[in-house]
Design a protein around this nucleic acid. Structure first.
Lengths: 342, 342
DNA sequence: AGATATTGTTTAAACGTTTCAACATAATTG
DNA sequence: CAATTATGTTGAAACGTTTAAACAATATCT
């Protein structure tokens, strides 16, 4: 590799000190410096194609202009979109993003966070998996700037931006009821993650408020690790339930994806036999023969706010901000009017 | 933020020099150092929760153990998967990944590459957009370690790993012909990117070899920026062509996604009226009522090889490796037997 | 016993920047 | 015209590590 150009090289060529070169290139003391010298330095720098060594700069300034982000699963479009939005947004503020995917695995999560801190990121944006409370509390004790995204822990007071999942889920179920469904199931993950528990709570409370008495078989809780078969079983149980479950809420886009593929192969008709609502927006939901009603999270805003909060924390530390966002229920054919009427 | 623990702090507490602490923590001179002292140092380090400052370390060692990756469009599942695989793979070698998305925009691409170099990444994995030849040549002149992924420039001799797109496309069209289709269209991007030109070339040559005389209206070239309407127009033209086009190859997953959604709303039947093959694997292709035959790229291997080549370049520079991968044609219902027979 | 090898540790320079404090010269003031 | 202020520039320390080279003390050799 061809030798790197340093401040020293520019200084030498221009016959000035390294200090002066640094000042010019960083536009400091700009009112003091001789305009011609400054221009000369800039010309030489451009000529030699100088690139500042960020590592050295960071060491000195104690700022890396890097933020670390740990998403739950980068191969999930929800995470991918979030990552992308955050990268865009960070870029606007001249920050670079390092990212990693915890795959819902607490120890991988801890490892990623550690790596990022060692790399002196200025702050972190995190979607913590189950059992990562310790790590979060540790960061907090450290006073390290971070903001939780999409999920948070009810009992730990940290900055976060997340959906009001209770409300979102509640509204979705209300819509199902309003369109005439009265036996409503939910397929979701068996998890102690707060946001998932909230989704479940929203579902249950909507039933209750509408005086629909919940039956045990309506709620299918899937192990987050072995997806496919459990979900297909759940669907099988739903379509063979008696009396028949006539609507179902999917607790995540992943569950929806697997479910829809399977439903596609079954002799049932959506929404006639089964109404469907899913969390999150994906292409899949559009392509299903009855485009699926879904709970749309304001990803862009969430990403933007997360960055905003983080930058605030980085600059004047221990400012905690907690933001709950509202979802939008996008109503489509999969919850079209029921044959039962209402 | 609570004060950071330095080597100095450990040294002080242990009553030894900074050097010794560094040696112990880096497992160097391990045969020389007194075992008890070493253990004591390790204990103190653990106790104080020491984390090495990677920035300082990098400055000294001239290695960041970071690689930069620029994908074409992180919101495309193809890119997202690739990014994920590379991150996993890099992690195995203790590298961290910085990523960015060029969005097929040359100047954004250049900016990202610049940022990454300033941050002293040890190497780059790049999917270059159109008109980024200059930047690639520049990197090459610099002797900077990089490997192109998914795409490369025919006229620039660099390391790359990519699909043999000509062959993939050629095989796909052969399959269409073998299953009785004789009027075969292709919807692809209007682009001078080599990999896209290869896909087109494969399509045309397969027709030629089978003595099917290509008609101008069969090839629909879409402007890469304004997708949706152009693609829908193309589909309209295809289904109203005379004599009727009875098969179509989609040049990318994006085109397939948009097309399938639209076709779903039309009164035509796949594969009876139109056989379909797409590039790349997505959930969409599974969910379509006639699961879509697709050209599967060996993403995992591509990612792994890319990392392998890059690490080789990083360690013993100017080793150029060029790898062409073979696709697998996954045959499903969308190319089921034609009513025309054959 | 003196020379040599081994064991255990430290000194000091270096990586490429930033930035405080100081210097020299020129311009302006009372 | 001496004192002050403004202009333009530089020296040197610092950021937190690594690492070559040297040192001191002990063990092993002939």
């Amino acid at each position: 590799m061809s030798k790197k150009v340093l401040l020293k090289d520019i200084a030498l060529k221009a016959g000035v000190s390294i200090t002066l070169v640094s000042y010019v290139l960083n536009k400091q003391k700009v009112n003091r410096i001789n305009k011609e010298t400054a221009q000369k330095i800039r010309d030489i720098a451009a000529n030699l194609n100088y690139r500042t060594n960020q590592v050295a700069k960071s060491l000195k300034t104690n700022k890396t202009f890097t933020i670390g982000i740990v998403v739950a699963d980068i191969s999930n479009p929800f995470s991918a979109n979030l990552a992308r939005i955050i990268e865009d947004e960070a870029d606007k503020h001249n920050y670079t993003v390092i990212f990693g995917s915890s795959d819902e695995n607490a120890s991988k999560f801890v490892k990623l966070v550690d790596t990022f801190i060692n790399r002196q990121v200025d702050g972190l944006i995190l979607s913590p998996p189950s059992n990562s409370e310790n790590q979060i509390e540790y960061l907090q004790k450290l006073g390290f700037p971070f903001v939780l995204l999409d999920r948070y822990f009810k009992d730990i007071k940290t900055s976060y931006v997340a959906l009001d999942n209770y409300k979102a889920s509640h509204e979705a179920v209300n819509h199902l009821i309003k369109t005439g469904r009265n036996r409503i199931g939910m397929i979701t993950y068996k998890s102690d993650l707060f946001h998932l528990k909230e989704r479940k709570r929203g579902y249950l409370s909507a039933l209750k408020e509408n005086r629909i008495s919940f039956e045990r078989g309506w709620l299918k809780e899937i192990d987050i690790s072995n997806n496919r078969s459990e979900i297909e079983n759940a669907i099988n149980e739903i379509i063979s339930s008696d009396p028949l479950i006539n609507a179902v809420l999917f607790g995540s886009n992943n569950i929806a994806t697997i479910s829809l593929k399977y439903i596609n192969s079954l002799p049932i008709k959506v929404p006639r036999d089964l109404a469907i609502i899913s969390f999150d927006q994906t292409d899949m939901l559009d392509l299903f023969y009855a485009p699926v009603t879904y709970i749309k999270q304001p990803l862009k805003e969430m990403g933007e706010i997360a960055i905003k909060i983080l930058l605030k924390e980085i600059n004047d530390t221990n400012a905690i901000s907690q933001v709950n966002m509202n979802a939008e229920l996008v109503i489509r054919e999969s919850t079209g009017i029921s044959i039962d009427g209402s």
